[in-house]
Design a protein around this nucleic acid. Sequence first.
DNA 1: TCACTCTCAGTGGCCTAGCCTCCTAGACCC
DNA 2: GGGTCTAGGAGGCTAGGCCACTGAGAGTGA
Lengths: 233, 233
Amino acid sequence: MRDPEKARTLGKVARPRLYEQLMEQILGYVESEQLGPGDRLPAERDLADQLGVSRATLAQALVALEVLGVIDVQHGTGAVLVYRPSMAALLRKLREHQNRLPEIVEARSTLEVKLAALAAERRTPEDLAAIDEALAVMADEIARGDRGVHGDELFHQAITAAAHSAVLAQMMGFIGEMILETRIESLGQPGRPEVSLAAHRGITEAIRAGDPQAAAAAMGGHIDVVSDVPLLH
Amino acid sequence: MRDPEKARTLGKVARPRLYEQLMEQILGYVESEQLGPGDRLPAERDLADQLGVSRATLAQALVALEVLGVIDVQHGTGAVLVYRPSMAALLRKLREHQNRLPEIVEARSTLEVKLAALAAERRTPEDLAAIDEALAVMADEIARGDRGVHGDELFHQAITAAAHSAVLAQMMGFIGEMILETRIESLGQPGRPEVSLAAHRGITEAIRAGDPQAAAAAMGGHIDVVSDVPLLH
DNA sequence: TCACTCTCAGTGGCCTAGCCTCCTAGACCC
DNA sequence: GGGTCTAGGAGGCTAGGCCACTGAGAGTGA
């Protein structure tokens, strides 16, 4: 798809964004000062001055840290730490080399197997209808000679929705794009779409029957097959 | 618009931030315009004008979206979409009612059971040393009459690290704060710290023995116990 | 004609300066 | 004591400006 590769090849050289550097510096500060959860960061004006940047830019860095859950910025009070530095440092490292396919597959498997089991327990008639609809879309796409990518995505989204777990769904969204990559890859193999569709039907029946174990097993098997692509790219 | 009730769960106060609203509006725009991955957002100046905010504030929203992986802002070119709108819309919805304890426990269980199994397969001697160290810290804290919160956290961090899965670790970080809450709660119950410590030792032995199934089972049991707090708060 | 260079308009990056709102500790009053 | 008021410090957001980067078209030479 896009190519964010260019910067990654040589490591962390290309880092043109100031706010990203600031995040690391702030994290470093937290570490050096031995700050823990609940402790407050220096005032924005002081911190900006100390780091040699404007408040506007510092504000961007704080937003980024807030989105990552590292700090909690409170109007009138200040920015308080949520995580201890070790966690934050961990988080930071990962951002550098994500997109590692085996791990993604692993994560996907973990989540979707659980989602399938939950869906079997919690699916409403509407959920089942959505799943059936997704199956129909995929079957239609395949019948037209398409790879069924869209229907495939719809199916997994419907399963996710049927599990009725916002948190798990959120995590699925988190790795959503990466999953999409592997999925398109997989459906590109000859005969694969038909196999996937059949697997989907099996999963659907288990969910319809309200059998969590069968649903989990079916989903697990499906993902194993789907993920077994020669990772030539 | 805002949801004051959600503040209860974690003791947080609903805090209206302009950049958060902007994120949603931008996501809504993406949806309404049917933009997909690769498409570009309007120029910052136009978008800021259109949304009735300053560029500085819009920049914060863009940073947040970038950190979440929704867009990729390129100097001289513009902000290009990374996720397809449906994914983004999903992400957005969840932001509204996260912090739902049962779901958090469920997610935690899913992740940590898997992490324990992986740790049993992949742990290095260093990983084991870190886990033992965490156990020692927790034992020491309890001996001093403390609740052992710190050691508990260290333990789970060590397990996470020993699983050697950056993606799963990232997801743990994602729900980390919420988990911390439930953990502190749990260890506050009389006699709980000792029970937890014993459970930790059991998990550790399974990991040391390289037995993924035993490790997963031990972790699953542990989390069931820990999570069984009367949710009176 | 082709290919190469150069220029420039448009875009994001970042800054300064300022005013507003919110929170809270401490003075103040009862 | 216990409640109320207030000033200062904190973050929220804006306006306007200049700089750096990108990409495409104009211009140039072979």
